[in-house]
Amino acid sequence: MGFLKRARVKSPWILHYCTGGCNGCDIEILACLTPLYDVERFGMLNIGNPKHADVLMITGPVNWKNREVLQRLYAQTPDPKVVIAVGACAATGGVFHNCVNTLGGVDKVIPVDVYVRGCAARPEAIIDGVVLALQKLEEKRSGGVAHAAGAR
């Protein structure tokens, strides 16, 4: 059991979903995966299936149509999970603060653990965000284990 849980923190799998931003952050997240920033050296892997993911990377100011998709993705991700909101519009709506079809931030729909600033967020900032997210994941994991032991 310890091995599996430790492996999860050492090698988090990332699910990336865009909820209607401008794409700038999305390509920066992809740039993180490519040789110059190469987050795979930390054991991170971008995958397409929420059921395998530990970290959700969400960009964009969530619109009404996307809201349910996002809720479903969040529900499908197994616990413990960490949500990173990447970019200004994922945090507060940013430049889309007065757009009619946006909800103004990921935290209006699902709980967010880490915010990454910038528009578009730089790859360095995204790596910082992932590092912080891993600490959160570890905290959640240890908290979760204590809770489970207490329940037993």
């Binding site: 945090a91 880490v114 915010y115 990454v116 910038g118 360095e124 900032a125 590092v131 997210a133 959160k136």
Partner: peptide, 29 residues
């Protein structure tokens, strides 16, 4: 968190009390 770093304010501030810096923000929880 809402700032889009367009530097419009730094350009138009009549007193010059705003300017853009190169060091990025870290992530926050």
């Amino acid at each position: 968190f809402a700032c889009i770093s367009c530097a419009r304010c730094a350009e138009l501030c009549p007193q010059g009390s705003l300017r853009m810096e190169v060091s990025p923000h870290g992530a926050a929880d």
